[in-house]
Nucleic acid binder design. Sequence first.
DNA 1: CGTCCACAGGAAGAAAAGGGCA
DNA 2: TGCCCTTTTCTTCCTGTGGACG
Length: 442
Amino acid sequence: MGEKSVFDSQTNIITDAVVFEEDYTPDEIYCRDEMKTEYVQILRPIYKGRPPKNAFLYGDTGVGKTAVTKFLLEKLADDLEKKHGEQTITANNLSILSSEFPEPHTVASGENADLTVVQLNCQNLPTKGEKGTSYQVAVALVNQFLSEEDELSTTGHAPQAIYNRLYKEIDRLGGTILIILDEVDAIGDDDTVLYELPRSRADGKISEARIGVIGISNDYTFQQNLSPKVQDSLCEREIRFPAYGADQLATILRERVDVGLIEGSYSESSLAIIAALARRDSSGSARKAIDILQKAAEIAEDRGKEEITEAFAREAFEEIRKDELIEDIKQQDAHKLNALNALAEAHRLDKVPIRKKTLHSTYSKIVEDNGNKPIAVRSFHNHLNRLVMFGLVNEVTENRGKGGGRYNVYELSQEMTPQAVNKAINETDDISWVDVTYIKDV
DNA sequence: CGTCCACAGGAAGAAAAGGGCA
DNA sequence: TGCCCTTTTCTTCCTGTGGACG
């Protein structure tokens, strides 16, 4: 009898971890029948070799927008292949639909690709975290068509040159080109890309290819803020994805556990709890529900238990929330981390709702101690505002009237703790300027 | 009811960081 | 190499304002 490896847990209830992964596509997508029907109508022209339609999808994160997209596109690719035989190509790797770093574009047989799908996440395109602009989207699109060595830099080009290049690449490919812009609301006010793309053929900028644009957004209001010309072209068709209800989430979970977990390791009621937790916390995100499920299963394994109990589900939920928080903090840039650092220190010293001015001087001290130059109060103010928008920091406006004036005070938001800030900063290894011992000393 | 504090946050432009092109 | 782009961030300057005080 072989000795058990220390890496093995006492029990194994997960049989196939694939079902938890982001890009797992189930055999069937549940509870999205109406959306699927509408979506099929949008894609149908492509199957028939007619000019594609543009569309706009919206709904909160994790309600199946990308899942349905991926599911239907794979099906479309299959069916096209069946229809035309092997050599009329279904083009570009659909797997990029969910991978963060798309592989270079590969069109199997060159010239006559029938359908090319390009997917792009418009969020966090350029410098970390901030808004992607039309320009950035255009650059990123061009890069999707180029091999890795040839990729363009994200700055330094004349905008018109980028658009021209984009048209050139598109025309070179020819055929039907379906451009999927995920998180399209990140584009912000300047929507030239959204205007240019759908009309490029009509404007004579391209002649060989036909372009379809599908915009995906989780901001309901985004589409209303678009300029009317863009609304006309892009929002030809729109599909709304409502949030999953708790029972629908449970259905989705049931499908996953069927494939991925040992029978008997879960009960209807524990699935229901997970569904309810996800429903409440994230307004119906399937992603969230699946994450909780995975975590709960892992916890059960670690404890040597054979069943996911309600307690494990709740524990998993809490743990995931904590992890997410740390992740959120880690994503902030240097100035914001230092601001959080200073704020955490204020918490430790119990000077909790702290005025911006005071906070700024603490911040300056930290930065200077590490040999860097602090930014001016006005910029600091902007960073703080950002943190407030991210929900990491609370802001309250105080008004002491004549003789006191009006000012804002800040503190870490409810779920934030100085420990969380500390942990996040410690885990951020690309910022040597944060001297953690300094915080401990003061 | 007007005063007046102390800042909020807009505007404009300078600076920094990245890069093309001849 | 020098000069030209771009985007984004930071600075400087400034006007606007909620409401307790008198």
